[in-house]
Nucleic acid binder design. Structure first.
Lengths: 129, 129
DNA sequence: TATTGACTTAGAGTGAACTTTAAGGATTAA
DNA sequence: TTAATCCTTAAAGTTCACTCTAAGTCAATA
């Protein structure tokens, strides 16, 4: 069992953010102590793991909340969840390919400037003689 | 020579955004007609191309503006520019690797759910008999 | 000449995902 | 017991990169 502070450290999310995520429906059913303190289980941590992966691959809070809602509705939403993840995966792959294309141009420009720099330095060295 | 509208179409940036970029120092020295209308050259378009690549790989407007400023300062900033691009490239590569790791987990989860769905459907089919 | 498109400055609005503040009270661990 | 941690609600603030509006003027094209 982990306190909100423990989970904050483990996930890198602030306690504020963890409560915020709970309010937004990203993580639900977190147990409480008799006094009302949150107690996260290992399973909660795992669920948070997936949530972070979805978030870090660019899924919006709203969509993650939708995914989580579906999960709670049971097995009859399996198809929808599979579809949601599949679509997300496709989107991420497309974005990464785009990113790579843009990065290639940056790399090209970098090489161009590196070459130009070499020439410039050579010129400077020559002038110094 | 292209009007702001032409460039908007070619780049996918709105005319508003093009003026905004100019104000923020991302693109400068755009020629004007006698009447003050912007006239973009092919070279401007190329510069915009690089700007979009930097933007699309996650560089902030501020940093792009810095890069552009350095460019205007001449060859003695070549080293700094090379360094800037190199650092940016590294960052993007790291982010993409991270992204890939997160996506792998999503893919794993997707496969898991797909399998679960198959089992669920099989079960439903059996019950129907 | 009429219509459409462009110009300016300056400021307000938008959406996403937090982040912070405030205020007051309860709980927990050493 | 006492210091540290946690709870709540509700709302305001932040950052980024736009996006839009206003108001008035000027230019270009058919």
């Amino acid at each position: 069992m982990y306190s909100i502070q423990d989970v904050s450290q483990k996930t890198g999310l602030s306690a504020h953010t963890l409560r915020y995520y709970e309010k937004e429906g990203l993580i639900s059913g977190v147990e409480r102590t008799a006094g009302g303190f949150r107690q996260y289980t290992d399973e909660d941590l795992e669920r948070l793991g997936l949530i972070c992966c979805l978030k870090n691959t660019g899924m919006s809070i709203q969509e993650i909340a939708r995914f989580v809602r579906l999960t709670h509705e049971g097995d009859h939403t399996l198809e929808e969840r599979v579809e949601l993840l599949r679509a997300h995966r496709e989107l991420v792959l497309e974005r990464m390919a785009e990113m790579q294309k843009h990065l290639d141009k940056v790399t090209w420009k970098l090489n161009f400037f590196t070459e130009k720099l070499r020439a410039y330095e050579a010129q400077k060295a020559k002038e110094k003689q």
